[in-house]
Design a protein around this nucleic acid. Structure first.
Lengths: 364, 364
DNA sequence: TTGTATGCGTTATCAT
DNA sequence: ATGATAACGCATACAA
């Protein structure tokens, strides 16, 4: 840490400015001196002090990511994709876990805000206001949540429901239940919109609302009994974790899957292959989603030319370029303008869904 | 970002130094001015520029974490614990994923080194040399790997094997197989030592080496056939992911668990509850391990009084205080000196292990 | 108790 | 093409 540009300058017998130039604009310095400096850099193992660079440039080469739960495989995969893409562009990623706690989320937002060039926010529960406060100071990209005026990229949850409905319909199911997620979840709201659309498009179908549950295995476990008690022959779960919980409870109650019920999850996380029966699921690759979100963030950051001597605080808030809205979708999107990013939604059919055999489960 | 201490100073009609003092040593400034400054800070929403602070102090309030795979639930949980504990002390955590790639790991080591106050390295595969190069410039804590001269904290893998052996032995098993992990894995080496110890302590037992595999579900899937072909009635898997793969393959081959084989995993990650049969496993809580490692790291960092105007590069390398070695163990540890940290190892028995019913699986 | 001045390591501006 | 010098925002030794 203690070896500075001055040390290099001494060894190469040049000034610090030349050292700096060799690293930032090599072509402008004479080949002779350049190689001399480079040699010194190499020998001393000099690496510019990032803090000093940041102090001048106002940029940290660091991105922030806030997720509700790192242990949830969905967010783990997302984080992996983000970190990967960021690293390719020389960015580090600070990952923070709000533990599904909205107060903690706000604190993280505040705490990370100034130390990163941009904030990637995944499925957060915070209000609009909390975000708009930060907006002038930090670039923000929302993942799986859309708010007007803020860039975002999300899975097309309506299409997700459509695909699942079509799949289950093709298997003969007409009574389809839905186990929902947290009430303030944007994804859940979208999925319910999808259900509504499907209800109207498919008069022969019945969609049964099994209410909300926590987006975990435990939540699914607790909801499975509602499913058994319902008229449904198939169920769509808020996410794969919930679906796993449902499978577990169904097994405990000796209900066969997919013979008695077809169970489908959403997101297609890795655990789908680990459970038995393996779980049918649909979604975009989280890693790709993460990469794409990061891509967008990097564009925003590098596009922005930072004013060396800018106006006062409030001036920055006014720059408000028309925010781009992006949607990961398998269908052409009809939204406003800007760069549309499309990610393919994959439906992966596994053992937990099958043809409608008979009447739904009825205990003897 | 653009509001500085000068702005606050102007509003409070004091000098910048007073502003700085109010925040760092409030008791040394007159109550009147103090509240005046505080009011201005509040009103302006002033937050000190971290880069400027870092430039002076040489510390970044950031920790680095390198894991081989964030998607592996083991490392996800570990990262969660680390992030949590770090946040409590005002530290952010940069998480990087080497994707099991040793070259990438080296690059990450290099790249993060200077931007963090300390590096938490989990199960890395790098050579000793690569680390000792960094040692003078960064504090390092190894997790689940021990190297002389470097602080580390790990699960007591020998005890882990002992507990599993005792458990399986109590169920009547005498032929126990082991499916190992990566060849250069420190954990795997420890576990094999544990097996060796058990072999000597339990003359009636036979331990069967089923070789190495990748530490994934796929690895377990591929190894299960060796298990079936062996004399074993029970198997200990390198980790839970491998165990899940084994279960899957056994199911595919219509081998009943635990009737025909008892299957045990190591680490007790969350997926143990999701599979069927639920998986018996043993290990320390990853989150606690992460917290403890971070605790140690924070102690190292804050203990170190950084010399404002220090000697040259090499001088720092000489400080070499006797490194502490820590081990998470359920038994008192007899290693050298310093702070011994003990974490309880939990054995969680689930459905995948059971009493030896009859002869091991033999196809009709 | 408070203000002035200096320096942290780097980049950018201006001379030369 | 290169070197001196001035910021960047903050903390601190020293002066008052």
């Amino acid at each position: 840490m203690s070896i500075t540009a001055q040390d290099v300058a001494n060894m190469a017998e040049v000034s610090v400015s030349t050292v700096s130039r060799v690293l930032s604009a090599p072509e402008v310095v004479a080949p002779g001196t350049r190689s001399r400096v480079l040699a010194a850099v190499e020998k001393l193992g000099y690496q510019p002090n990032r803090s000093a660079q940041s102090l001048i440039s106002g940029r940290t080469s660091t991105l922030g990511l806030i997720v509700p739960d790192m242990q949830n495989p969905y967010f783990a995969a997302l984080a992996k994709g983000i970190q990967e893409r960021a690293w390719e562009s020389g960015y580090l990623v600070v990952v923070a876990d709000s533990d599904e706690d909205i107060a903690r989320e706000k604190a993280l937002l505040q705490g990370m805000n100034q130390q990163v060039d941009g904030l990637l926010l995944s499925s957060l529960r915070s209000d609009m206001e909390d975000l708009t406060d930060l907006l002038p100071s930090t670039e923000i990209v929302l993942i799986n949540r859309e708010m007007r005026g803020i860039d975002s990229i999300s899975q097309d949850n309506i299409e997700v429901i459509r695909m699942l409905t079509r799949h289950l319909g093709a298997l003969g199911h007409r009574q389809i239940a839905y186990i929902g997620g947290p009430k303030n979840s944007w994804s859940d709201a979208q999925r319910r919109r999808g259900l509504e659309e499907c209800r109207q498009d498919n008069p022969g179908f019945e969609f049964i609302d099994l209410g909300a549950t926590s987006p975990t295995q435990a939540g699914g476990y607790a909801s499975a009994d509602f499913l058994i008690a319902s008229e449904a022959t198939a169920v769509i779960c808020f996410n794969d974790l919930v679906a796993v919980g449902v499978l577990e409870r169904l097994r405990a109650r000796k209900v066969a899957v997919p013979e008695d019920f077809s169970v489908a999850g959403i997101d297609n996380v890795s655990v789908c292959n680990a459970v038995s029966p393996t779980l049918t699921s649909v979604g975009v690759s989280q890693q790709r989603l993460g990469r794409t979100a990061t891509e967008l963030m990097l564009q925003k950051i590098t596009r922005r030319t930072l004013p060396r001597a800018s106006g006062r605080t409030k001036a920055a808030a006014e720059k408000g370029s028309a925010p781009t809205r992006n949607r990961a979708s398998s269908m052409p999107d009809t939204s406003t303008a800007g760069n549309e990013l499309e990610l393919p939604i994959e439906l992966v059919v596994r053992d937990s869904t099958g043809p409608l055999k008979a009447a739904p489960y009825a205990p003897d």
